[in-house]
């Protein structure tokens, strides 16, 4: 049994003296922050880069709808994971996002499979040349969600900053590229599977490297 340390008694009195009412961190508010960042990303993307023609005609291709829906779904799951990780708890399972990420991995897999016999022409097409632009635009549009989720987590107490940083990157990459997809003119699986997924990977890497030092407490 540990004997009470006199300094600990003093510390407790100091902490009691400094107590101020606090507003408990709410999961709902965290998700509202994530949803608001997504909404602003959409508005910014449409304002700055315009709405693609097939969306304005309500005639988007199935590949586009499935892919963008997958990005939004993974973004929402990763955001939820980030918000939940802000509240520490032993025994909490934060691995659910991996299944959604695995599902999204079908996109680059499909892109590679479908270009096996024509990769030279596929990667020399205008769609491929625009790809790097999509990675950059998706990353830039993701920065809003990136900042919002980082700000939220700094209010909280994530106990695994590396994982939290990675999740922040995944969520912001997904929301960023989903936003830019409103303007991107390409709907083919090779462009979406390689370059749009590339934006998510770029943001995930950014989150893993940049966010953890900001979350230490």
């Amino acid at each position: 049994m540990t004997m009470p340390h006199p300094n600990t008694d003093m510390l407790i009195e100091e902490l009691v003296g400094g107590l101020q009412p606090v507003r408990p961190l709410s999961t709902t508010r965290g998700m509202v922050v994530a949803a608001a960042s997504l909404a602003i990303t959409f508005v910014a993307a449409i304002t700055l880069t315009g709405l693609r023609w097939d969306l304005s005609m309500l005639a988007a291709s199935p590949v586009y709808v499935i892919a963008t829906g997958s990005f939004l779904l993974l973004g929402a799951i990763a955001s939820f994971s980030v918000v939940m990780q802000s509240k520490p708890r032993v025994g909490a399972d934060h691995s659910g996002w991996r299944w959604a990420a695995l599902m999204l991995a079908i996109l680059p897999f499909a892109a590679i499979v479908s270009s096996l016999d024509s990769w030279r022409s596929d990667f020399a097409s205008p769609s491929a040349f625009d790809g790097l632009g999509c990675v950059m635009a998706g990353t830039l549009f993701g920065l809003l969600t990136f900042s919002a989720l980082t700000w939220w987590q700094r209010k909280g107490a994530p106990t695994n900053p590396e994982r939290a940083g990675l999740m922040t990157g995944v969520a912001s990459g997904c929301f960023g590229i989903a936003g830019f997809s409103l303007s991107c003119v390409h709907s083919d699986i090779i462009h979406i599977g390689i370059w749009h997924t590339g934006a998510v990977l770029a943001c995930a890497l950014l989150g893993r490297l940049v966010v953890p030092p900001l979350l230490r407490w």
Binding site: I12, P88, G156, A157
Partner: peptide, 14 residues
């Protein structure tokens, strides 16, 4: 123990 109590104080809202 003191570090943990301090952290509890700072992160009471969580």
């Amino acid at each position: 123990i003191q570090d943990t109590l301090l952290s509890l104080h700072r992160k009471l809202a969580t």
